[in-house]
Amino acid sequence: MKDDKLTIVSFLCNWCSYEGADKAGNARLNYPANVRVVRVMCSGRVDPEFVIQAFKEGASGVLILGCHPGDCHYKKGNYKTLRRIYLLKRTLEGFGIEPERVRLDWVAAGEGERFAKVANEMVKTIEKLGPLELSEV
């Protein structure tokens, strides 16, 4: 099964996106089982090191989901995430890692459908790119 190779690690903020993922569950919306979850209090906690480490540990894609801009539970954490993740994506390009392997998006606490949609889209994107095979060193 493709799932074996193509793991997607998602960092979900506790207040919006994690709840959004729960809502997707409540509504029994399906998405592939290779979307895995790490809960953080705020998307602002997501350190670029986490994303890189996820790739090192075998993930082929990384999703970072936070509250919509302006709605951050901690007021402004997601603005920092926006800056960091974009710069990280540009940096990863230099490492030969396609920027599409990292996706930052916003999912509100009530947006179960949106969570499932983003998760499904991400899986499709990563399936198209194939597994991330880092060079052996």
Binding site: Y79, K80, R83, L88
Partner: peptide
Amino acid sequence: IDHGAKGLSAIASILGIEDEEKLSEEDVQ
């Protein structure tokens, strides 16, 4: 562990954050 990742995280975190609410994603990019 990763000097570059930490450096970029710190720099990105303070990029244009004075009016961060007003900058669109395109502005940030």
